[in-house]
Design a protein around this nucleic acid. Structure first.
Lengths: 218, 218
DNA sequence: CGGCCAGTCATCCAAATGGTTGATTCCGGC
DNA sequence: GCCGGAATCAACCATTTGGATGACTGGCCG
């Protein structure tokens, strides 16, 4: 039986080198290509596919400095844009916020590991994912469980819209003008937002929303 | 002439492996020890020092998942707590906000590199730092230069400190307690911050500070 | 030495924000 | 066709925040 053929996708040369070194120590796996962002990853997959040497597993980071991000790339890969059948995608990232995890799972990722995981855990995840199984880091699994147990109420589209203006530093009056509604309505929305996010002032709302990736950070 | 003896400090096994692999390709350097956080780093330095095998350079990450953070550890190392003379400390991290950079420099770091830097740049920085020189990533240097050229009024250290608490959503009262000062003082600082950033409320201050990378978003 | 600035604190007042209650409209689902 | 949720607005009141002025201290610089 031949080795598991892997594509590494990460924008940090240091991390790619680390994964390459780590995977080299695992018998049964081979890194056949690397990419620094989602675009390059898709190109590599297509190239290898047309060569008749498809990859068996994609190890993907979520945050890329520039170019297509990991979630988008995962979605495109699973949509078959880089050849079918699409290979499993194992997310390997630093963050473990709810929004990140859900987005990745929705995009079709087969697993979600954290970079600070011990090598043995990563090895297990790689083997599981390549075999078509799901591989979740314990921390991630715990977070998902907790989320199912007590789901945080979803913000409405209008509320998110308001939150985005809020994050730019606008006053209630300014937001009211911008959205063609009264200040009273703005306040009502804010109160709803606060209660859904479990905070009691606008700056904390921004912090919470940014943390949960409801709105953009920086 | 013997090799430059290096201690790696990073909480991610993957990153440590990457740095080890990358440094192994550079002639003239040897990784003699690794640590996953600041406490372990200090312990390693002391151990090697008593063995009569001091390290010539510490490669330090700033963010550690648990244990002592990089800035604190750098400060302690430069204070001679792990043997003197203290070795140069080269910061190697993911972020490049003003607050991070200033804190590291104040703690006594000899340089500041970003993890997404190409290997050659990292190699140069390692050699420079080991030789007792300063090594700044181009992005970081540019930021510092721009800061000097730009007449954008610099925030004081205390003001940045306050800004960071502000961004977590704390009220004036909460910040006052946290910083052991009165609410009146907090308000004074805020007014100064607003005028320096050209804004007139706290959320706008956070937006401006995040935009200018004075503090970290998310 | 004298001046300046950061940091500290106080007081007063005006404006913005947070919290509550209640009401209307519209839409989609059961 | 009724119910519930989202969105809209109003009025009220307590608290927080913003803005101005003034004052004291300790350090740094020329």
């Amino acid at each position: 039986m031949s080795d598991i053929r892997i594509l590494l996708v990460d924008d940090h040369p240091v991390v790619r080198a680390g994964l390459r070194a780590m995977l080299a120590d695992f018998p049964g796996v081979t890194v056949v290509a690397e990419a620094a962002d989602g675009d390059a990853a898709l190109a590599e997959l297509r190239r290898l596919h047309t060569l008749g040497e498809p990859v068996d597993l994609v190890l993907m980071d979520l945050q890329m400095g520039a170019g297509m991000d990991g979630v988008t790339a995962t979605g495109k890969i699973k949509a078959g844009e880089a050849g079918s059948p699409p290979p499993p995608v194992l997310i390997l990232t630093t963050y473990d916020t709810d929004a990140d995890i859900l987005a990745a799972v929705e995009a079709g990722a087969s697993g979600y590991m954290l970079k600070d995981a011990p090598p043995e855990q990563i090895r297990q995840a790689v083997l599981s994912a390549a075999a078509g199984q799901t591989a979740l880091a314990p921390e991630v699994a715990a977070r998902l469980m907790g989320r199912i147990r007590n789901p945080s109420p979803a913000l409405s589209a209008r509320e998110v819209e308001l939150l985005e203006l809020l994050a730019t530093g606008m006053s209630n009056r300014a937001m009211a003008k911008q959205l063609f509604i009264s200040e009273a309505t703005v306040k009502t929305h804010l109160v709803h937002i606060y209660s859904k996010l479990g905070v009691d002032n606008r700056t904390a709302a921004i912090a919470a929303a940014t943390q949960r990736r409801i709105i953009r950070g920086r």
